[in-house]
């Protein structure tokens, strides 16, 4: 299947899960907000150009903001994620990015440990920035730290579940 079409379908499914399922679960605790949608950026192919990443990030953020009615909040966080992604991949992968075909970052193409590191770093960046922005408007530092830890752990669990249970076709290298 064409990479673009595949990713558009994936975006629609991920947005559906985030907006209509995760957003409607009764809150477990005041500190836990389940964020899952940024897995779309994590799963984009290796060779996506940095400019394209930024534009895709902006689009995804605006889509989430449309449903959460928080103009710009998620957009800002996803933009940071999209900007940092190439650097993190560069750190973890010895290869030049242009050498890759249409492969995506998975636990097979990257190896389980580097992939987990990649997910952890970017999840913390995304949630940290998002909650920092929320905290700048109001709230205390303790609240900020608590929410960062609780929300990030839930995000990590969700992303890892997504990675382990959703079968993505990749050629094993």
């Amino acid at each position: 299947m064409n990479v673009v079409i595949k990713n558009i379908i994936r975006l629609i499914l991920i947005m559906f899960v985030q907006v209509f399922i995760l957003n409607n679960i009764t809150p477990l605790h005041q500190l836990i907000v389940p964020y899952f949608y940024f897995i779309f950026i994590l799963w984009l192919p290796f060779k996506t150009s940095r400019v394209a990443l930024l534009f895709i990030g902006f689009l995804v953020g605006m889509l989430v903001d449309m449903f959460y009615k928080t103009p710009g909040l998620h957009t800002a966080a996803v933009l940071l994620l999209a900007y940092l992604r190439p650097f993190v991949i560069g750190l973890l992968m010895p290869k030049e990015i242009t050498e890759w075909g249409n492969e995506e970052p998975t636990r097979f193409t990257m190896g389980l440990a580097p992939f987990t590191t990649y997910v952890i770093i970017l999840t913390l960046m995304h949630n940290g920035y998002l909650i920092l922005l929320e905290w700048m408007n109001f709230g205390s530092f303790l609240y900020f730290m608590g929410k960062l830890i609780a929300t990030s752990s839930v995000s990590l669990i969700l992303v890892m579940i997504g990675e382990l249970f959703i079968h993505r076709k990749t050629r094993n290298r």
């Binding site: 940095r50 400019v51 930024l54 990030g57 902006f58 953020g61 928080t70 103009p71 710009g72 909040l73 957009t75 800002a76 933009l79 940071l80 900007y83 922005l133």
Partner: peptide
């Protein structure tokens, strides 16, 4: 790319605030 990132980030933040 960094400048593009900054421009987009500013757009998002100005909407937020």
């Amino acid at each position: 790319i960094f400048i593009l990132f900054l421009i987009m980030q500013t757009t998002a933040l100005s909407m937020l605030f």
